[in-house]
Design a protein around this nucleic acid. Structure first.
Lengths: 336, 336
DNA sequence: CTGAAAGCGCTTACAG
DNA sequence: CTGAAAGCGCTTACAG
């Protein structure tokens, strides 16, 4: 893209009086194979010429580009954005750039991006909020280096994964509700496709059942994880003869939506209804400092994901798929 | 990155019984140069082999990768994220992927990314919230295809730009304040480096002065565009013998911060203090539906930016730098 | 309308 | 420890 003519590895080699092969080796840190003299000559040639490798040359040669793709369901969700940011920072540290793709939870888009990223020869794909799709299944069969974030792979459960133990967290929320004696209890869960949403719900449900107070199926609502859907479901949740005393929300935005409806209805949180969120969205600090939630360590997750892509394309992770379960934290504020 | 052996253009050529040159031409839409028969034979070879071009090959050959870089000051700001999303959607439409880089408003990081993106041979750089830096100046001198978003180039004012007329918008806010008869008026402006922040302030200041009520310099506060800084400045703004009756905020998050402090102080918005934001952050709809603000069309901006990168790397835009000024809208809600 | 061939910038067996 | 050469997948003057 520069207008100036490119300075190539050949220019460096010429200036240093060695072959391009040697320059390449030295620049790639195979120092044990070059004499000190050679190395210093090369270093200064690089300096003087201000040589910057064209990464595409290397990419073609190695059939792998120094890039990683992040597929995310919603770029404007602050929680996802925070994970994205950590991944970008982390991949940069290992010399790779991050391509951002917005799948919008759509299987079609997800497949299109997987295919495109393959043709970009990316070193790996970080799949945040995976959705079942034929292209994903195929990519997995082809052994593409994909690491799943937050939601596990819908196809091969043993694929690399970074996230929390959602089942346990759901159970913890249930216990908290029981400790407080809230009754009746409702839940607004996320999409069933999502292992994260599903496991949260299952953990919550099982813990309630285990304590002898199984949840009433009529008190289970669905959402698409948006504020809007929380707002909409709140209408049912809060009405009828036995409105919910406490609600376990699929994520924080859902809680925001319900909270808004509470305000419109003149209901007090937590006196009339208790709300429990999930993720500890970065917005909470400023916009919902009252929200009790499960804190998911987005930065740590992003950092871990990036690390998986270090070296040449997750070859190791591919052979020894890692399930990296990071700790979550119960954050009890005033809403529950 | 795939495990399967690559299917190349040569395979297609062999199968179709033509040369790779011809396949390349046809696949790149130089149809007028190929007979119908040739074209159909190639199309079906592509189908049968499920050929997907390796973009890196083309990139090296053309010394330009089908990617565009977006440098943004803050990936978690929903307003920026919304622009980023529109750019990503738009670049995809023209067959390019978007690399995301977080400059955090730091000149050093901005320079590092510019350099890295150059070595990636990106087709162009979208620079959201540019900061003055030596690397940027150099890149401009080298004629790198950079388009400035929101903030104009700190070096060559004629570089491609997409954004609103901030000066006019600042003036409109001033007029609105005068219509309402607010007095005294304070302003929390953004960084001086930023043409957007500066022009907003200047337009506001000049309009007040023109009406015979120049702003008191002691009533001008600074911020870094964050909620935190709004919250902090609010302390001064709202105290003393003559607390502000109305505040023009550098952007919406600053207004959120001030609003929070108002709540803590028991001050009512707009009865005690009127607040005017900027950008119409997507969060407003759900979290600050009361905030009067200037709506900046983030989606249109992103779409326009992407269009500038169509074809081969903005060659045209480079020669005829475009200043693309999109319309803004005054959004009067209850806060002012 | 089509093909043979050189070239984009880098890496890496292979031979020394 | 080092170099000559082939190769990664594509594009594009050039010649026909």
């Amino acid at each position: 893209m520069a207008k100036k003519k490119q300075i190539t590895i050949d220019d460096v080699a010429a200036r240093a009086g060695v072959s391009t092969a040697t320059v390449s080796r030295v620049l790639n840190g195979m120092n044990h194979k070059a004499s000190l003299d050679t190395r210093t000559r090369i270093r200064s040639a690089v300096e003087e010429l201000e040589y910057r490798p064209v990464r595409v040359g290397r990419a073609l040669s190695m059939m792998q580009s120094p890039t990683v793709a992040l597929l995310t369901p919603d770029t404007t969700n602050a929680f996802y954005a925070s994970i994205a940011d950590a991944i970008q920072t982390g991949t940069r540290r290992i010399g790779k750039a991050m391509i951002l793709c917005n799948t919008r939870e759509q299987a079609i888009l997800q497949d299109a991006y997987i295919e495109e990223m393959r043709s970009h020869l990316v070193a790996g794909i970080a799949l945040l909020g995976a959705v079942p799709s034929p292209g994903l299944e195929r990519a997995l069969a082809d052994d593409m280096p994909i690491v799943f974030i937050n939601r596990k792979s819908p196809y091969r459960a043993d694929r690399p994964f970074v996230g929390i133990d959602n089942y346990a967290a759901g159970g913890d929320v249930a216990k908290h509700f029981m400790d407080r004696g809230y009754y009746p209890i409702s839940v607004v869960r996320g999409p069933w496709d999502s292992s994260a949403s599903r496991e949260r719900f299952e953990g919550f449900r099982d813990a309630l059942a285990a304590s002898g107070h199984p949840i009433d199926p009529a008190r289970v609502y669905d959402s698409d994880l948006s504020m809007e859907s929380g707002y909409i479901q709140a209408e049912q949740l809060l009405s009828g003869p036995a409105p919910a005393r406490a609600v376990f929300c699929a994520n924080d935005p859902v809680a925001y939506g319900i909270y808004r409806r509470c305000g419109e209805r003149g209901l007090s949180v937590p006196d009339d209804v208790a709300l429990f969120g999930f993720d500890d969205n970065p917005l909470n600090e400023w916009l919902a400092p009252w929200l009790s939630t499960v804190s998911v360590p987005s930065v740590e997750i992003g950092t871990r994901v990036a690390k998986l892509f270090a070296g040449s394309g997750m070859a190791s992770a591919r052979e020894h798929p890692e399930q990296c379960i990071v700790p979550y934290q119960m954050v009890i504020r005033t809403s529950a």
